[in-house]
């Protein structure tokens, strides 16, 4: 509505004003068209692959190997075939156990550390924060062998435990983001709580935690998606034991076994993606807002 009327009003006025003015309208229109063309091209680029796998997943084995784009017949049975030929449910349960427990433990352990680094004064706080950053920079391979040996000596390799247990001690990325957010909460809230006789623990639990909820939600979702999509960790610790395979390992092995059955590989891919995409759609507002709020302040 307004988009149609505003340029018209502008052009009527243009006749009365100096010659440089009339250019503005077509230029703005061109700009508008260019912007939307770019937006549509981007949308296609991001949607294209999803459409592609959806179409391929519904083809027959033979057609999936051809270069045709549109399925000749709609083979919904491909999806149920995945369930009968692979232990997909087991993979889903394993991935769920890994993602949910890692996320819960990470929150329980990282929040107090972030709170201490952001809101408690003590000597060595700066050094502790530098160590958090150092942990973020460290390539996992530098510590992989000793840690692997540690888990092997405890008999915990061939399972997902080596990926879950370390979360008891906090996660550097989460601590960093939570700390940055907690720094933005005005000091006065803590002071008021202290005047009311709250200790540090109560202040954290009753005052800071509720205020940091968006950041906590964002960090939890980041961790959940990280675990859900993690390939390296399960590959390292669980690849030798098919009973503790996650979806990522499962789908990679599926590709190796059924390399010519692109339709089934793509159907499996869709089944792997579906749960996270649903979670993302439900939580996207919290997620994007959380990231926006945590921001990246120095």
């Amino acid at each position: 509505m307004s988009a149609d009327t505003v340029p018209a009003a502008g052009s009527a006025q243009d006749r009365l004003t100096p010659p440089s003015r009339p250019r503005r309208m077509p230029r703005a229109t061109l700009y508008w068209i260019a912007k939307h063309a770019l937006a549509i091209a981007l949308a296609l680029m991001f949607l294209g692959p999803l459409v592609f796998i959806a179409l391929t997943a519904l083809m027959t084995d033979a057609q999936a190997l051809t270069s045709q784009l549109w399925p000749q017949s709609w083979n919904w049975g491909n999806f149920s075939e995945i369930f009968t030929t692979t232990p997909l449910l087991r993979w889903i349960v394993n991935t769920m156990v890994y993602s949910l427990s890692a996320t819960a433990l990470m929150l329980a352990s990282s929040v107090p550390v972030a709170y201490a680094l952001a809101r408690i004064r003590f000597r060595g706080r700066k050094t502790a924060f530098l160590l958090v950053i150092l942990m973020m920079l460290l390539p996992p391979q530098v510590v992989a062998v000793p840690i692997y040996t540690l888990w092997a000596s405890m008999g915990l390799t061939n399972s997902l435990w080596p990926l879950i247990i370390p979360m008891v001690f906090g996660d550097a990325f989460s601590i960093f983001l939570l700390r940055q957010f907690m720094l933005t909460i005005p000091r006065e809230y803590s002071d008021a709580a202290r005047v009311d006789g709250c200790g540090e623990f109560t202040t954290m639990l009753r005052v800071i935690l509720p205020m940091a909820r968006p950041a906590i939600a964002a960090v939890a979702l980041f961790q959940f998606f990280y675990c859900w999509n993690d390939y390296y960790g399960p590959l390292l610790y669980a690849s030798t034991n098919a009973d503790s395979w996650t979806l990522s390992l499962g789908i990679a092995s599926f590709k190796a076994l059924h390399s010519v059955q692109w339709n089934l590989t793509m159907a499996a891919t869709i089944l792997v993606m579906a749960p996270v995409i649903i979670v993302f759609f439900l939580a996207q507002k919290v997620f994007i807002e959380g990231v926006t709020l945590t921001g990246v302040k120095g």
Binding site: S109, S110, Y115, R121, M135, V142, V145
Partner: peptide, 24 residues
């Protein structure tokens, strides 16, 4: 206050020693 600070980061310090410093 400082004592609480150390108490809060203690688990993480243990984790840092066990999973980063010593393995490194």
């Amino acid at each position: 206050e400082a004592r609480h600070g150390y108490l809060f980061i203690l688990p993480w310090i243990i984790g840092f020693l066990a999973f980063t410093a010593i393995p490194m």
